[in-house]
């Protein structure tokens, strides 16, 4: 087995030993959707929501919530902690590059997000008859793009914070605006005029709009895709510029 494979297997194993991360990333979004879906009124068609139900709107929101948990709450704390404890430094004294650990963390968190997305879509579909995605290819691309941007944001947080504690604090500062812009409190498509327009310029707001469009059977708007992608590249650029191995 190559070094990269062993690092990946090791990080996956370690991730599985973190019940907190597993719960908040993989289980919580689906549980939130279940809780909302169990409210009878949320399962009724609402004319003000263009004939959709509240539970329909919350499927993409739960999907984004998994990404926020992974990218903002979990991964940067792990990475900054690895740096703080000299784990990356120790690794740089071996033939394995510390970047392999970074890549493994991205892969593990990305994998957890995809499991969470699948679980959320399955719960919505099987329990509450939410059509998984009217435009599956568009939906899939929007999911991948949003996952990329949220993990790039996590990389940026890890790059800007010297310790696990600092990463946790900065993560928390970003967590609430991220949740708001993803529509956890008020779905983005129901936000009034100007607020909605502004939120659609944020990474998670644009992702939410793209997912909504794809769920309804259309291709995401180019603008939403571009906004998410540009944010993602920006985060990645900051992460690459300021990330330190020790």
């Amino acid at each position: 087995m190559t070094a990269t494979t062993v690092v990946l297997r090791t990080e996956a194993r370690l991730f599985a030993r973190e019940p907190g991360a597993l719960f908040w990333i993989v289980a919580f979004p689906a549980l939130l959707l279940t809780a909302l879906g169990l409210v009878p009124a949320f399962r009724e068609v609402d004319e003000e929501l263009d004939g959709l139900r509240v539970v329909d709107l919350y499927v993409p929101i739960a999907v984004l919530l998994a990404m926020i948990m992974a990218g903002v709450q979990s991964m940067p704390v792990v990475l900054s902690g690895y740096r703080e404890r000299g784990i990356l430094r120790r690794l740089s004294a071996t033939p394995a590059r510390p970047s392999s650990l970074l890549a493994a963390q991205l892969a593990v968190h990305g994998g957890a997000v995809l499991v969470a997305v699948a679980l959320t879509l399955a719960v919505g579909w099987l329990a509450f008859d939410v059509e998984p995605a009217g435009q599956p290819v568009g939906y899939g691309l929007a999911v991948l793009l949003a996952a990329f941007t949220s993990l790039a944001l996590g990389g940026m947080i890890a790059a800007l914070t010297p310790s696990a504690k600092a990463a946790q604090t900065l993560g928390l500062v970003i967590f609430f605006p991220a949740m708001f812009s993803a529509g956890v409190y008020v779905p983005v498509s129901t936000m009034p005029g100007l607020l909605g327009d502004v939120v659609e310029l944020t990474p998670f707001g644009a992702s939410a709009a793209a997912l909504d469009r794809a769920a309804a059977g259309n291709w995401p708007h180019g603008l939403d895709v571009a906004v998410t992608g540009v944010w993602g590249l920006l985060f990645l650029g900051v992460a690459a510029r300021w990330f330190r191995w020790e």
Binding site: V6, V7, T10, Y82, G86, I87, A93
Partner: peptide, 27 residues
């Protein structure tokens, strides 16, 4: 060169055996 450094650890929840297997895989 093999090193033992000050203030550098391995992942907290890694077992001794896993740490050794991980590092063995690098060589």
């Amino acid at each position: 060169v093999g090193v033992q450094l000050q203030r550098s650890e391995v992942q907290e929840k890694l077992t001794v055996r896993e740490a050794l297997e991980l590092y063995a895989a690098f060589y």
